[in-house]
Nucleic acid binder design. Structure first.
Lengths: 155, 155
DNA sequence: CAAGCACTTTACGTTAACGTAAACCTCGGC
DNA sequence: GCCGAGGTTTACGTTAACGTAAAGTGCTTG
């Protein structure tokens, strides 16, 4: 749940160091499994593929999702909850994948994007903090009023 | 910047206690002023009014925004940054205003909504925490690669 | 072998949150 | 008097992120 870095196959020439308990689970998923697992529709998953966020294999016509796909989906949905657009999410996720090629300009760009994301997240944290305070205040008032009402007869 | 609760006029029968330095600024704003102030377009502000989030006065045909309107706009935009829909924002903001009437069912509903918002915010905090960790990881990797590249010639 | 279930593609529909264009008023200043 | 900078209404256009319907494929199960 907390370990994301897997990169199972397709590693050209760099060995993975410090992998931890390396998940040897060679599981795959159907579209329906993933859909239920994350409480989205099949349509949504296909749409994400169309948008370049997922790239499942095919057994004939049927899509076969790997562990990596599952992680990607998880990250995508998390990004969505935070208000990022699919385009933004794709930009980061794909760069994450394209990293080992070590193109310098790409990496610089990636660091830029990460800095921006960081700033966005900071802003969101601040927003949440403020909004929590507001909610606290509203709730206090509501409870006060409720209490002052005591046991009246309406509802 | 941090104090929100003002409720200047239109308080029917309850005196405001603990008001602090009570902002006696009887300022009003034009639509353009607010727009620049919050870096949105006039259209956006009119749209928010149409959606019941703002209710400026009129001097003839021209809209006159009060301090309260400004606060509402601020809250609305904050809510937006957190991914709430205008409908959700309206529901809370309007109830906040309608509070003094002390309708029991309304208040209960309000407390429900607040609880939900709280849960959402908690989820977002968790998401942010996780995403920050991910970003940290990606950045570390990127910097590693950049470093290992040393001083090559591409770009 | 027929039914059913899960999967597929294609394609048009929908909603939220505005953008944008046209056509109009109105006010202070030169 | 008119002109530019603001304001206004009306209304159609746009984008993202899917929903939904139609029509077909492929397996396995009674």
């Amino acid at each position: 749940m907390t370990q994301t870095t897997s990169s199972p196959a397709s590693a050209p020439n760099s060995e993975a160091h410090r992998d931890g308990p390396l998940p040897r689970q060679r599981r795959t998923y159907s579209i329906g499994e993933l859909a239920k697992m994350f409480e989205v529709t099949n349509r949504t998953i296909r749409f994400y593929e169309q948008e370049g966020l997922l790239a499942p294999e095919r057994r004939g016509q049927t899509r076969i999702y790997s562990e990596k796909d599952r992680v990607r989906l998880k990250l995508t949905l998390r990004g969505k909850r935070l208000g990022f657009s699919l385009a933004e999410i794709r930009e980061v996720v794909m760069m994450y994948d394209a990293m080992p090629d070590g193109n310098r300009r790409q990496l610089k760009r990636l660091l830029e994007i990460l800095a921006n994301k960081r700033a966005d997240l900071e802003q969101q944290l601040e927003d949440i903090r403020l909004m929590q305070l507001d909610i606290d205040d509203v709730e206090r008032r509501a409870r006060d009023v409720l209490a002052s009402l005591g046991d009246e007869a309406n509802d």
